[in-house]
């Protein structure tokens, strides 16, 4: 272990490879040996690109303990993700800490349906890989606004027993929403699953939860509130689940989708909208 350890101030988190998956969606493999050693599906890291940088959470999409690397997939949506996207192979970022959050709750089920939206389709990959190894039956619904955002298609379809593509503009697969597709699959009793997991915007999560509630299927929402430390020290990531306040970084990030207060989550995620736009304008001129 000693050789992995680096002292404060050194920059060990080197980008090993980088790939563009779609417009504004990038995949990077990054050196983070301690994280790679103990990651589990559903966990995330918090990264900081540079000295003045913000701490942002990103799901650990894949990891390789022997190479000492982890893989992240992100959408360039604001200042930090854009800065990360501009880092080149061989360059380093300042901080990577993790694995944070609890391992996914779906890992012990035999029949699992998983729904991912846009860039977060990538978050299904580690869970899928694990479930496949355990011999579980897996159904994946990959949903995006448009066909070119259906990412990691080869890797994911290869690991799923059933794989459906849905786009809202109809450029690929079914035209419509993930919730409607799920509803159709359940209605025709084509699909028999014990648990549904969804990751994406709170709006999608809410509509998925509404569908599965009718069918009384246990449903897990992987939430993405704004985070700061990711360690349970600040309370920034708090969400309301079944009238109780939970910290997504240490109690989650997965929660019972039928109990989440989505309105609160949505408004909290918008809290810094104007500040985010301001810093983007100042630093990226856009």
């Amino acid at each position: 272990m000693e050789s992995y350890m680096l002292r404060w101030g050194e920059m060990p988190f080197k980008i090993i490879s980088k790939k563009k998956l779609a417009e504004k969606i990038k995949m990077i493999e990054i050196e983070a040996p301690l994280v790679a050693r103990s990651a589990m599906p559903g966990q995330f890291v918090i990264i900081r690109v540079d000295q003045r940088g913000e701490r942002i959470p990103l799901t650990i999409v894949d990891w390789n303990p022997s190479r000492g690397t982890i893989t992240l997939v992100f959408r360039e949506i604001g200042l930090t993700t854009m800065k990360l996207g501009r880092r080149r192979v061989g360059e380093e970022i300042l901080d990577v800490v993790g694995p944070l959050g609890n391992p996914s709750q779906v890992l012990n089920y035999d029949r699992v349906c998983m729904i991912g939206e846009g860039v977060r389709i990538s978050s299904l990959y580690p869970r899928l890989k694990y479930l496949k190894k355990c011999g579980s039956h897996t159904v994946v619904i990959a949903y995006a606004k448009s066909g070119d955002e259906i990412i990691m298609e080869d890797e994911i379809s290869r690991l799923s027993d059933e794989y459906y593509v849905v786009t809202s503009d109809g450029t690929r697969g079914f035209k419509g929403t993930a919730a409607i597709t799920l509803h159709n699959l359940l209605k025709e009793s084509k699909m028999k699953v014990e648990v549904v997991l969804a990751v994406g915007s709170p709006l999608m999560l809410r509509s998925i939860a509404a569908v599965t509630k009718r069918y009384q299927i246990r449903t897990i929402a992987d939430l993405s509130p704004i985070m700061l430390d990711g360690l349970g020290m600040c309370g920034c990531c708090r969400v309301i689940v079944g009238n109780e306040v939970k910290f997504a970084c240490i109690d989650g990030p997965e929660f019972d989708a039928h109990l989440v207060d989505y309105d609160n989550l949505i408004s909290r995620m918008k809290m810094y909208r104007s500040e985010e736009q301001l810093s983007l304008k100042i630093h990226m001129g856009g």
Binding site: L34, D95, V97, G98, P99
Partner: peptide, 9 residues
């Protein structure tokens, strides 16, 4: 050793 969470890392 910064960025090491005992109980996680």
């Amino acid at each position: 050793l910064t960025n090491v969470v005992i109980g996680r890392t």
